[in-house]
Write a protein that binds this DNA or RNA. Structure first.
Ligand SMILES: [Zn+2]
Ligand SMILES: [Zn+2]
Ligand SMILES: [Zn+2]
Ligand SMILES: [Zn+2]
Lengths: 132, 132
DNA sequence: AACGTTATGTAATAATATAACATTTATAAG
DNA sequence: CTTATAAATGTTATATTATTACATAACGTT
């Protein structure tokens, strides 16, 4: 069960926007889109993004400097994330594959390092773009 | 066998710097360090970095906006990369684990997408930082 | 009410990355 | 050697992404 976190005003505005967009959004595009709602400064956006990432409502797509709503209802915190990214149309989707996440969560090597978090990004061509 | 690519002047200066540093370096830190060698503008650095990434001599650590020399002699192109990152001291090392790379290179799901590339970043605490 | 914590507002600035254009150097073919 | 082509360089300006610093307000608990 996902704990219902009580989002603040700015957090809610920004989460709703990203969620409705259905894809990754960049910080300044978010800013542009919420200015009519009174959010005027980059920092207001980044603060809300930070919190939303922290509680797992959104994830950052590191290779794109963009943020996407969690598509996996069980992601409470952003600690084990995997995405597929189309290099042509830039479509992004969150991969939720229990075998993959088990494999990676249990991964260890001989470095003596304990891994508590990972982020994986796959790149390629989506179905649509392949057939062009 | 790794093809010996003939690096240009700027590419060589920048690769040598990153390689000698032994860890990840940021673009503007690189710029600062090569100014005495006549490389004066960000674009000169970014162009060399782009090429070095393309041919696999360095990789970009996406979550840190930093670049590290390839520690795995067989990485001809940056198409299958995995790193471990200490969240305390920011030490980064390239993971070369053939099981892991096989598993990820062969990964496929029912999305219909063909993956040609991936990047994986593990986060945690390194041996040293754990024992503090 | 008093307190500590979280969120907000605002301005300025830092850090990261690319666009546009002119020129030079390297590579390969004829 | 000459011409053509691609790759690399130099330079200026600018775009994009993200944080610092400081002041104020709202929220949750006792
Ligand atoms: Zn998720
Ligand atoms: Zn596509
Ligand atoms: Zn490598
Ligand atoms: Zn460490």
């Amino acid at each position: 069960m996902q704990k219902e976190y009580n989002l603040s005003k700015n957090q809610k505005i920004i989460f709703d926007l990203i969620d409705k967009s259905g894809g990754p959004m960049k910080a300044y595009s978010i800013l542009f889109n919420v200015q009519k709602k009174g959010i005027k400064a980059p920092l207001q956006v980044y603060r809300a993004l930070d919190k939303l990432v922290e509680i797992g409502k959104i994830h950052k797509i590191e290779s794109r400097n963009a943020f996407i709503a969690c598509q996996n209802s069980s992601c409470q915190i952003s600690k084990a994330t995997a995405f597929s990214i189309c290099e042509s149309c830039e479509n992004v989707s969150e991969i939720s594959n229990s075998k993959l996440s088990k494999y990676l969560s249990n991964f260890s090597d001989n470095s003596g390092m304990k891994y508590s978090k990972y982020n994986l990004e796959f790149f390629g061509l989506c179905k649509k773009c392949k057939s062009k």
